[in-house]
Design a protein around this nucleic acid. Structure first.
Lengths: 230, 230
DNA sequence: GCAGATATTTTGATTACTCAAAATAGTATC
DNA sequence: GATACTATTTTGAGTAATCAAAATATCTGC
């Protein structure tokens, strides 16, 4: 049984690997996201390699093996189902469930997990719009434009918000930009590095390009299926 | 912040202390309930004493301090609220929630805990009939007779089942003897060490005196209040 | 192709928890 | 009151995860 530390390393490695699928993850990067000193990352990665969970190339970096990826996806499935459960069933705010799920993801039994999945009707995405891996360990990451590179003036919908920071999510809330919200992108100012959007029935909201890049969108009409086939 | 190991020691000490409130807990006993060797219990207890959570008298035993008891009660509150939540809201069976709660009790945030408490309407007892300590750290343990020493032939109700073993709880289920169930005690045979009871609308069920002692009862008419005042 | 900057690995220690087994204290027996 | 039995404590060691800091490798610029 993988320790919670191991589960966290694998999860973080998976998330990093998503960002740059082609190359392996540097020790320095891993150390930063895990909040440890580089030496710790090195020795931990060696242990993971001994367990067959990662491929480790000294001075180059680390990549998940298939086994490591399966485990990582299972942790992420637990995390995201728990997040949705906390919002839908328990009634917590989507801005606060991430930290809670960070703990719960390590202790939920398979029995409870599948019960939650069933209760929620086998959902496809969590409250942030992040896809929920299946029990079998597959995820479908949809390619979606963000506020930065979508069409201007079109009817869009927030599909996913790729930042888990409490403060950022509260900002999104206040601007009416949570997943499912209708909006249009009004203007982009390349030199000032700004994007202005307006959510349905709201004041226009301006933000930096880097903030804008965290909102992924889909066309407003085409509401994506929210449930997995039973 | 107390580690999960410390929380477990305190919880177990509390439960033992409740059994024999007058005397202190022997190291051997603590070692058994914690599933460790006696030496481990000794060194752990010394650490707890250094933190002011227990009074430790070498070669005699250990008792919780007020601080230790408060912490223990908080853990037990989390455990029992989680159990009830898993039964009522998630729909798990009462025979399986104990093991699940054993993990969850250490990672639930105060925020989530109070939300669950609210959602359940500030309940007084968990699915086994065990009382739920208040947020302030007080519990009311009611003195109740068991199948072994209650009146024969009277209309009774199962109020509490003091065994968390999955198998035992399933047996209770099958005999219709879960908390809330109406029943009467038909007969006791001192020599054969047996007790026979009949739950409402069921076949009579015979069990040993030691099994019978695990069912605590209250008069059937007087249904105890189930909710705490808001 | 060498010097310096930067990233990585190694080494040695630390903390929390655990066990095995030896030492010790307390209790009971005769 | 010496002997034996039992419970407890001590000692020494191990594991998982971590840090600080020294050693080493790799890249970059000239």
């Amino acid at each position: 049984m993988a320790s919670r530390t191991i589960e966290n390393y694998l999860k973080q490695l998976y998330l990093e690997q998503r960002e740059t699928p082609e190359d392996s993850i540097a020790m320095g990067r891993l150390a930063v996201v895990m909040g440890v000193v580089p030496g710790t990352a090195t020795s931990m990665v060696k242990a993971l390699a001994d367990s067959g969970l990662v491929h480790y190339e000294p001075r180059t970096g680390v990549r998940l093996t298939t086994a490591g990826q399966q485990l990582a996806l299972h942790v992420i499935r637990r995390h995201r189902l728990v997040e949705l459960f906390l919002v839908k069933t328990v009634g917590l705010d989507w801005s606060e469930v991430h930290v809670e799920a960070e703990e719960l993801e390590h202790v939920i039994s398979d029995r409870l997990l599948e019960r939650i999945d069933e209760l929620l009707g086998h959902p496809l995405v969590d409250p942030h719009g992040d896809p929920i891996p299946s029990a079998g360990g597959t995820v479908r990451e949809l390619e979606m434009p963000s506020f930065v590179n979508c069409a201007l003036g079109q009817a869009l919908m927030v599909a996913r918000v790729v930042d888990q920071e409490r403060g950022f999510l509260q900002f999104a809330n206040q601007s009416g930009l949570m997943p499912g919200a209708k909006l249009e992108v009004l203007e982009r100012n390349v030199n000032a590095d700004l994007v202005t959007v307006r959510a349905a029935g709201r004041e226009a909201q301006t933000m930096s390009t880097s903030a804008a890049a965290k909102f992924l969108v889909s066309p407003a009409g085409k509401s994506r299926a929210k449930k997995r086939k039973g």
